[in-house]
Design a protein around this nucleic acid. Sequence first.
DNA 1: ACCATTATGTGACAAATATCACCGTCATCC
DNA 2: GGATGACGGTGATATTTGTCACATAATGGT
Lengths: 184, 184
Amino acid sequence: MDSFRAALPVPLTPAHWQLLRAILLPVAFSKGGQVLRPGQRCDRIYFIRHGLLRHYLLHEGKEINTHFALPGTFTTDFASLASQQPTTLYLEAMEPTALWVLRRADMLGLYERAAELQAIGRGLMEQLLAQQQVRLELLLRGSAAERYRYVQLRQPELLRAVPLRQLASYLGVSRETVSRVRSV
Amino acid sequence: MDSFRAALPVPLTPAHWQLLRAILLPVAFSKGGQVLRPGQRCDRIYFIRHGLLRHYLLHEGKEINTHFALPGTFTTDFASLASQQPTTLYLEAMEPTALWVLRRADMLGLYERAAELQAIGRGLMEQLLAQQQVRLELLLRGSAAERYRYVQLRQPELLRAVPLRQLASYLGVSRETVSRVRSV
DNA sequence: ACCATTATGTGACAAATATCACCGTCATCC
DNA sequence: GGATGACGGTGATATTTGTCACATAATGGT
């Protein structure tokens, strides 16, 4: 729980922290467990206590990884969360994974009781946005080699956490190309 | 101003609208005018009244367009706005462009006086996030042709608004390839 | 320990795309 | 109204990357 608190974008008074903690749900998934799948509505934000979540979508029968959520970070499917439309993403545990779950409705209810907590909501959005920004810059790097080196530089934990074949689609290149790029 | 109000993520009471309108700044740029450049801190959100803004970054001497902001939409550099670190982006008017500017500090000040307005801040973030999501999906589509068709389908106004040359780096392909893909 | 399965490395070849060079068209500005 | 420069189209060629095939680790389960 301390890691959750530390990951919040703003410091909290003990009273506010009590309120927030009361709406946190502990959830666990085993390896391969599906946290979210296409067609469902996403109405929650996940905090990774330990383990690893993979976001992916299917494109012409192939899985394309769009994000990996590492321990200590928040994640969700924005598009669905914001619009409350059904998602097109899969969210899957790559290892046994423990989460704290924040439901949107609970969070909105909390805002009624303590408007200061709205700053948390904004802050979480900003964190998630910053993640997206990094992701975008990655994909705009020209060559396969540049993309790999960009991850090496900006997200070294990711290289340790995910197998090469999963990384490939995240970089937008084939598994073989990643292998070759890495060996140089 | 009506278009601005219409673009807000939540409906406003007349009283709240008065408060918000008081902090809006009208700003105009001529063709080629720089709204933001690397090294500056971005502390504002822009609403496009008319005209067109281009976001780009330099990568090995070449300009790479990361976003085009069309009339009726909000835009900003998140990464800089959220972190208050200097930006690495250029934001430039491609035509004579008129904006409403919302300064972060003014907005935060408003939250103190009317906590309900925080919902606007969150809503804007969500809109911007949804834009990013579309952008990401675009870049993950495999081929040059798929990317072009994706824009045709999802952002047809964009094709009308920006010249092919500028679209190329946005799609992550060369100008010539866009030309060939389009001719089929 | 053994087998089955999954992950990774690598060569040969095919396909997609970039690059370079050049063309014509169109708008803009003295 | 002629020069200038931006834009888009197209061919020839070079590079990059994907694909297929197969070999070689690792890993997990019983």
